[in-house]
Design a protein around this nucleic acid. Structure first.
Lengths: 331, 331
DNA sequence: TACGATTGAGAAAACGGTTTCCGAAAACGT
DNA sequence: ACGTTTTCGGAAACCGTTTTCTCAATCGTA
């Protein structure tokens, strides 16, 4: 392994000087910089990130935390996109990115999780799939020992940013579109919501209710708990007499559509997320497409901002209203 | 951060002794071990893995390498399961696992990839989704600087193990089952294969051909390139007159089934992989279900074996022949 | 009883960087 | 031309472990 000392010798300077060049310190003359860079080139030197991490507690290692349990097809697609986005942005920023998974923390208390992250010299975390029941992770963020970027939870502080689409607005938009493009403003809508411990569920319900006030349609909200099966059952029971079925996730929308098809009725259905599976689910379905890859990228860039000393903030990302067709997902 | 020195002081021993206790060295008395462990408990000490990694070039950091391009829904589900399996096994073995992605290596030559991995003190890699065209990765493995575990490629050496199901046998099994459960041994079978640069494609084709010899049915092999769309087109053109459509992947099986449905003919179709999407694709389809999570776990354990100094080998893992039904994938 | 063999524990040198501090040389102002 | 500041580069301490060596104490045996 070629080390910084080899480079120093080759360039005829001190190791500290090489280090300064690597890290773009000021107070190195153009001349020296050139000579050092030349030596780096020639020796194919790549700094050992482990050593760097040890010596400067600075090192940019970011962990992606989530709960891998209850993995559905949809969530693994979404997670994969988060991770790939984060890795991509991490590569561009030339830092380590170390995905971990919440499973390893199951049953641990906050201190222990903290210690484990510290033991890896991790300074910043991206948390996805967080809901209100995950007390340990929530507390971890609130203690602010780490720079945290949390997806789809309204947390914000000195060291915490949140990121995600505006769920209330998006729900309003997709529902309005579904209503206006179909039968009219005085319909009755069955809204099948996600799990109640989730922030996005609250927001989406709020959006639907505000729109119902605004347009004056009848709105029935029922808890589908993000379950395709439950959504299907609810639709069987209560869907027939409604005009539109709106769901708090695509998976539930698919369940609802299955039920409608079985009953031989053809109400429009709208979902939320924009997963690939929607392309296989039938016609007459629209959804809010989130760009999960982009969210992952942005989340990582936000980690860097926070590590750079800037304050936490809220980031809203754009979304699309789409009809996912089979042709679009076909590969 | 509580360090090994704090523990040493507390226990009244030298730091080296603490280190020995942590790493289960012999030549420490029961007595001392107890005292040190007590101190560790009391101080909630967790060894800094970065320092450990720097000091002993031993540290167990494993990278998962793959090509994230051309991510289909199916492959993201499969990758996620590989990764989660590996992470799970990694946690159990108490080592770091650092998923990286091949994307960062796009366009790099072998030396550069090597340097980058070295710079992270990575000693062992798991490679998935490798095909014959990925020269850099293949060469990386062949140079044997790393302990490599490669999924579904027939590479084996001192420092290289491979893992996967027996694709030829599995293809034979699922095809035999499909034939015998349906019309009889003298049918004509259309086999839509995967991409030709892939080892699993060769094996699966070989399995199908051997069975055709054995049972004496007519076998037509066509290249579907792992594409749902292509499989669909092939089926449209040539599927009608056949009795059975066998495919080299589930995604292609779904495409084939789509075509059959559109043509209003109902041949049995079999796929390969056992992805969730199959549950949404229709009746009369069977497939080989691989346990990707288990493969990920085993791959990581194999990394540890190799790092422990044992020689590379081939590992065949079990598979199931199943019919994925909607009820089974419903959540 | 004495002597080599064994065992248990500590001191100190790595590992490969970063960072602080210091001094020499160059630039500047008057 | 002299004192003062600024610029640039180097020496050395440090990050938290592991690991090698050394040494004292204990043991077994003749």
């Amino acid at each position: 392994m070629v080390t910084i000392r080899d480079v120093a010798k080759r360039a005829g300077v001190a190791v500290s000087t090489v280090s300064k060049v690597i890290n773009n310190y000021p107070s190195v003359s153009e001349d020296t910089i050139a000579r050092v860079n030349e030596a780096i080139e020639e020796l194919h030197f790549i700094p050992n990130s482990v050593a760097a991490s040890l010596s400067s507690k600075q090192s940019g290692r970011v962990a992606v935390l989530t709960d891998p349990d209850g993995q559905t097809l949809a969530s693994s697609e979404i997670m994969m996109q988060y991770i790939m986005g984060a890795v991509k942005a991490g590569n561009e920023a030339r830092l380590d990115i170390v995905p971990l998974f919440f499973s390893m923390f199951a049953g641990m208390n906050v201190e222990e999780i903290e210690h484990r992250l510290e033991a890896q010299n991790i300074r910043s975390i991206i948390v996805c799939g967080l809901d209100r029941d995950m007390k340990a992770l929530t507390e971890l963020i609130e203690r602010e020992k780490f720079k945290s970027v949390v997806v789809d939870m309204p947390m914000e502080s000195e060291n915490t940013s949140n990121i995600g689409v505006d769920h209330a607005q998006a729900q309003k938009d997709i529902l309005r579109k579904t209503i206006t493009e179909n039968t009219g403003p005085s319909d009755s809508v069955l809204y099948i919501s996600g799990r109640t411990n989730s922030f996005v569920t609250e927001e989406r319900i709020r959006g639907a209710m505000e729109l119902s006030e605004e347009l004056g349609f009848e709105l029935t909200v029922m808890n589908g708990a993000f379950s395709e099966k439950t959504a299907r059952e609810i639709t069987f029971k209560y869907g027939r007499d409604k005009d539109i079925i709106a769901c708090g996730s695509d998976l539930m929308a698919i369940g609802a559509m299955k039920a409608l098809t079985d009953m031989n009725v053809f109400h429009p259905v709208c979902g939320f997320d924009g997963i690939t599976l929607m392309g296989y689910a039938g016609k007459n379905m629209t959804t809010v497409r989130q760009d999960f890859g982009f969210i992952g990228e942005e989340a990582l860039r936000e980690c860097m901002r926070l590590m750079g000393g800037e304050k936490g903030r809220s980031i809203r990302v754009p979304y699309d209203l789409v009809q996912v067709r089979y042709e679009d997902v076909l590969n």
